[in-house]
Write a protein that binds this DNA or RNA. Sequence first.
DNA 1: CTGAGGTAACTTACCTCGGGGTCACTTACG
DNA 2: CGTAAGTGACCCCGAGGTAAGTTACCTCAG
Lengths: 202, 202
Amino acid sequence: MTGSRAVGTKGVPRGERESQILVAGTEEFGRAGYAGASMVEIARRVGVTKPLLYQYFGSKEGLYLACLHRAGDRLTGGVAETMAAGGDPERMPLAVLAAIFATFDHDRYAWKLLRDPTVPATGDIAAAAGDYRERLDAFALVGAGQLLGSRGLSDALDVEALAHVWTGVVDSLISWWIDRPEETAAAMTDRCARVMAGLFGW
Amino acid sequence: MTGSRAVGTKGVPRGERESQILVAGTEEFGRAGYAGASMVEIARRVGVTKPLLYQYFGSKEGLYLACLHRAGDRLTGGVAETMAAGGDPERMPLAVLAAIFATFDHDRYAWKLLRDPTVPATGDIAAAAGDYRERLDAFALVGAGQLLGSRGLSDALDVEALAHVWTGVVDSLISWWIDRPEETAAAMTDRCARVMAGLFGW
DNA sequence: CTGAGGTAACTTACCTCGGGGTCACTTACG
DNA sequence: CGTAAGTGACCCCGAGGTAAGTTACCTCAG
């Protein structure tokens, strides 16, 4: 604990409060989307009032950006690490899934922020989200290319489409997971391994 | 043409205008989500002002419901027809995709309405969307059960998860398609057939 | 043929309310 | 008594929603 708490202070120290707000914000933004989420609702979740959110994060956009960066950095970092480890192209998808499940077990809405369709089309949020998405898509593109290449398929649009579908699969799995809080990360990984083995005939 | 146009009339007849509004509404709701879409923007697309939308559809919720029913009825109908035709469980997914692509070639946003995460959690819209989703999920569940069953897998949650992922795959394909307007329905079907054949090793 | 009247289509101008955003103030601890 | 944490009460704007009026076309009496 670096909780120095400085001099005159009341209530919860700033850093801790910010973390609480980021968690609540990620859940609410993930659930309702940027457009549908409300600042007062996020404040209510934390047990605090709206002005505190503005004092700490400046604006709705600022809070969203903070949530987005927290989620995006962890996600791209985790995936990059897994991909860098290399291995059989057939087994990469499962390895990536396992990493994502393990990383976001207690923060399942984080993934949703990168793919929120209700953010404004222009501005800082769109730029940041687009950047993270691009990085993840690059990984997906490599994986899809290797997989299809090993099957003798090399059409660029085929690869693109498969990569896009792959990110959609991850999205679906996380949505399903969110609706089943009792399902652990390990159970999810096992389930995916079993079903994929069945489908692809391993 | 049944265009009787009745007596005193100016501008575009009601039925025709309603169709235009449904098309524009579907696109805008599909693009921005229920929460993010604006009535004045939909009106602008049609080349009309907001009160006309309210005269014809009563409210934002009413317009969304009208768009939703148009999309949902066509979708569930088309899928039901394809599934009823029966056939090899391995080839059902592709047949369903082909039907969806053919049906929604000129109305690609329609699918999005059934899975809009920004609609209010309760009320008529939630009920109607939930109903359509349930019907589609039932089809997906049957297909997933047959597919996994033929591989010796029968865990109920595995089937559920696979069905959910399948609808997510459709969602992803349609998103990708929306971003590539020049891609025809036939080309999409071919592409999916090719990639699936490659992945599943046919 | 014509113009009076009726009706469908459509608009201008407005109301209302909820959510983003701000300011001045209070509370509690060092 | 100074400072960090936090709040009550307010402003403002945009989006949903509405009331009343206007325009163009059709019909039919004379």
